[in-house]
Computed example of a mutant assay.
Amino acid sequence: MPVKRITSSDVARAAGVSRATVSFVLNDKPGMRITEETRRRVLEAARDLDYRPHASARSLAAGRSDVVLLAIPDLPIGAGISRFVEELATALAAYGLTLVTHLAAAHGRPLPDVCAAVDASVVVGFSSFDQDTVQVLRRAGADLVLPTDTEGAAPMWHVGRLQAEHLISRGHRRLGYALPGHPAFRHMAGERLQGATDACAKAGLEPPVTLTVHLEVASAAQAITAWREQAVTGVCAFNDETALAVLAGLHEHGLTIPGDMAVVGADDIPTARLAAPPLTTVCWDLHDVARHRAETIVTSLAGGGQAAQHPGVSADASTNPHVLQRSST
C-alpha cells in the first residue's frame, strides 16, 4: 500500500490549529499575531509528521518557486562542468534556492517543458538564450532567464589569447593549435582558436598551425609529426583533455617537454597536475564564478537589477581567467 503524503491539513489537525495558521508559521509570515505556544505546537507537529511543503504550496506562499534550472548544452560533461554544477548548487543553497539540471544531450523533454514541470523561477544557461527562447521560457513560468542575447555571454577567445600570449612570452615563434575531436565543441573551439590567432597577429607571427587531435595516442602522434614538419615549438590545446593527448603524442615520439615542444591546456581539470610533466593550463576560480552567478540571480529576483554578469563556466574577463604555470611550458 502506498504511503500517504503528509499535508498541511495533517499538521493542522495534529497541532489543533487551522491550515492558515500552519501556513503563517511555516512560511514565517510577517505581521501575524501568533503566540509562541501555537508556533511551537505547529513546528513540533510538522517535525513529528516529517512534513515537507509541496513545491506548488511553497511557490504560492513565496510568490515564486525556489528552483533554478540549469540548462547544460549537448557537450561531454567533463570535470570542469561537473565542478561548476557543484559550486553553483552550493552557492544557491546558501540563499535557499535549489538547482535542477537539464541535460540537452539526453534528448528528453524540451527545456520549456522541464521548466514548467519543475516550476522553475530561474533558467540559467552556459550560453546566451535568444529572445524567442526567453519568451517561451517566461511563458513556461520562468521569472528570470540568464544570459540573454541582449546581455551577451562572453566569447571564449580570452582562453586562446592567454594560451598564445603565454607561449609567445616564453620565446615560441611558431605555434600550433589542437582542436578537439568531438564535434559538439566546434563552436567553442573556434572562438578559442580566434583568440590564439589574434595574439599571434599582434606579435607579428603566422597564425597557429591548426590540427584536430582525437583522444587517442595515434591521432596525437600524427599531429606531432605534422607540427614538427612545420617547425611548431608550442601548442595551444582546446582543453586539458586535448592537451593530455598531445603530451601522449610527444611521449610516443620520445620528445622532451617543453624542450622539444611546449603545451598549454585549459580548464585545469584534476588530472592536469598529475600529467608527465604537469600541464600548464588556463583556469578560473569556479567557486568565484558560481558565487557571482548566484548573487546575480538573487539580486535580480529581488528586483535590484542584475549584478556583474558571469555567464556560465567559461565566463567573461571579469572572472579573471589566468595561466597556471606548470612544467609543460
Rank of each mutant, 00 (worst) to 15 (best):
Q163E: 15
G160F: 00
H172R: 09
P180I: 03
A142M: 05
G181N: 09
L162P: 00
L146G: 01
L167Q: 01
V159H: 00
H182G: 03
T150S: 15
R174Q: 09
Q163K: 07
S169E: 10
M156R: 14
H172N: 10
D143N: 11
L162I: 01
P180L: 08
T150D: 13
H182L: 14
L162H: 09
H158D: 15
P155G: 12
G160Y: 02
P155W: 01
A178V: 08
P180Y: 04
A153S: 15
V145R: 03
R170D: 12
S169N: 11
H172K: 10
P147M: 07
R174I: 02
A154G: 09
R170T: 08
A153Y: 04
L175S: 01
P180H: 06
R173Y: 03
R174A: 04
R170S: 10
P180E: 07
R174D: 02
P155S: 15
Y177I: 00
V145A: 04
G171M: 06
V145Q: 04
Y177S: 06
R170V: 14
H158W: 13
V159L: 10
P147N: 12
G181Q: 08
L175A: 01
A154F: 06
L144Y: 03
W157Y: 13
V145T: 05
Y177L: 00
L167S: 06
R174W: 03
M156T: 13
D149Q: 14
L144M: 07
L162G: 01
G176S: 09
L162V: 02
A153E: 05
W157A: 13
G176E: 02
A164N: 04
R173M: 03
E151H: 11
S169M: 13
H172I: 04
G152M: 14
A164R: 02
P155K: 12
L167N: 02
R170M: 15
P147D: 02
L179A: 12
G176N: 05
G181T: 07
A164C: 11
W157Q: 10
V159S: 02
A154R: 08
L175T: 02
P147V: 06
P147E: 01
I168C: 05
L144G: 04
E165T: 11
G171D: 06
A154P: 06
V159F: 04
G152S: 08
H172S: 10
A142I: 01
S169C: 08
P155R: 14
D143Y: 07
E165W: 01
H158L: 12
R174V: 04
D149I: 15
G181K: 12
T148R: 02
H158P: 14
V159C: 05
L146R: 01
D143G: 09
V145L: 02
H166Q: 11
H166A: 09
L175R: 01
G160D: 03
H182K: 05
P147K: 07
L167W: 02
D143R: 05
G160L: 00
A142P: 03
I168E: 11
A142G: 01
P147W: 00
